[in-house]
């Protein structure tokens, strides 16, 4: 299937000379939730800005549903909704006025029923006649989402939708994203909360210093790069690791009462049973054991720090 967004060799150098994107290639699949991760200043907002027409690419090309974003900008942009990272809102407009404006701006015919649906889905219906400046930050964030959804986009960009947002709104937002996906909308989100990507995303891209270092299915990424840790709580503390266990990279923690074995997830079959057999042979007993799969956060930190 043709990707809904196809980015090729995209480069951006700002007027300051700073190279914010370096030859980025990325295809976004239709209907997926794609999480773009990366530290501050990695180039996430720049990438989104180029696709949406706010930032000019230095070189490279972007196609949205086959439409070139420069030559065929109308068709491309009509498909996209954008929720910006910053809370850029009008002040004196009402909530209703601003979503109606957004729908009109994207060339869609007025549809009060559809807008009501959008506002209700975001718990904004009661606030529809309020001026935006009288709303709290979280409410403003909802207004921006409502504006982005007002023209029924096929692709939704959420640039750090949950930054500075309380738990309830965050959960609402996740639910909303899932509902959008059910309707076939493609969602691309950036976030600093890795558990969010872990929870939501189908695929994950990691960008650092303008370079896309990994793009992978979330499950594959976690399997491939995820480390597992086996911790054995020993019955009796030991002073040193016996030489016959040298084949396994073990560490001794908690004054010798915990033995920790860290391994790549896909090697698990080879390592663990043999280790346990060897311990049994040596008469080392343990009262409990734990395994832990490393989180995306661990993966992310190791990826990013590895490139620094």
């Amino acid at each position: 299937m043709q990707p809904v967004i196809s980015i090729s060799q995209l480069t951006k150098t700002y007027a300051s000379g700073l190279q914010a994107l370096k030859q980025v290639d990325l295809d976004i699949r239709r209907g997926e939730i794609f999480a773009l991760l990366g530290p501050n200043g990695a180039g996430k907002t720049t990438l989104i800005g180029i696709v949406c027409g706010i930032v000019r690419a230095t070189s490279g090309s972007v196609h949205v549903d086959g439409h070139d974003i420069v030559r065929d900008y109308r068709a491309a942009r009509a498909l996209i909704g954008l929720v910006p990272q910053e809370l850029h809102t009008d002040m004196f407009e009402t909530v209703w006025g601003t979503v109606r404006f957004s729908r009109g701006l994207f060339g869609r015919p007025p549809d009060a029923a559809r807008l009501e649906e959008v506002l209700r889905a975001l718990s904004l219906w009661d606030k529809r006649n309020d001026r935006i400046m009288a709303l709290s930050g979280g409410m403003k964030r909802r207004v921006l989402i409502a504006k982005a959804l007002a023209h029924d986009p096929q692709v939704l960009f959420l640039d750090e939708p949950t930054a500075g947002v309380d738990v309830e709104l965050r959960r609402d937002m996740w639910a909303l994203v899932r509902r959008l996906r059910e309707r076939g909308v493609t969602v691309i989100l950036t976030t600093h909360y890795i558990e969010e990507a872990e929870e939501m995303a189908d695929r994950i891209g990691v960008i650092n210093k303008g370079e896309l270092i990994v793009v992978e299915e979330k499950s594959v990424l976690m399997r491939k790069l995820g480390r597992k840790q086996l911790t054995l709580h020993l019955l009796e503390p030991m002073q040193a690791i016996p030489p016959s266990l040298a084949a396994w990279p073990l560490t001794l923690n908690a004054q010798g009462s915990e033995l920790e074995y860290s391994f790549d997830a896909h090697e698990e079959h080879a390592g663990v049973p043999a280790l346990l057999r060897e311990l049994d042979r040596l008469g080392i007993a343990f009262k409990d054991l734990q395994t832990r799969q490393s989180s995306l956060e661990d993966i992310f930190v190791s990826l990013v720090s590895g490139r620094r």
């Binding site: 949406c52 706010i54 109308r74 068709a75 942009r77 954008l82 910006p84 850029h88 809102t89 701006l105």
Partner: peptide, 14 residues
């Protein structure tokens, strides 16, 4: 100044 220009720039308007 307020940044709301993003919406107009991202809209299918010439």
């Amino acid at each position: 100044f307020t940044g709301t220009i993003y919406e107009v720039l991202s809209a299918p308007v010439s």
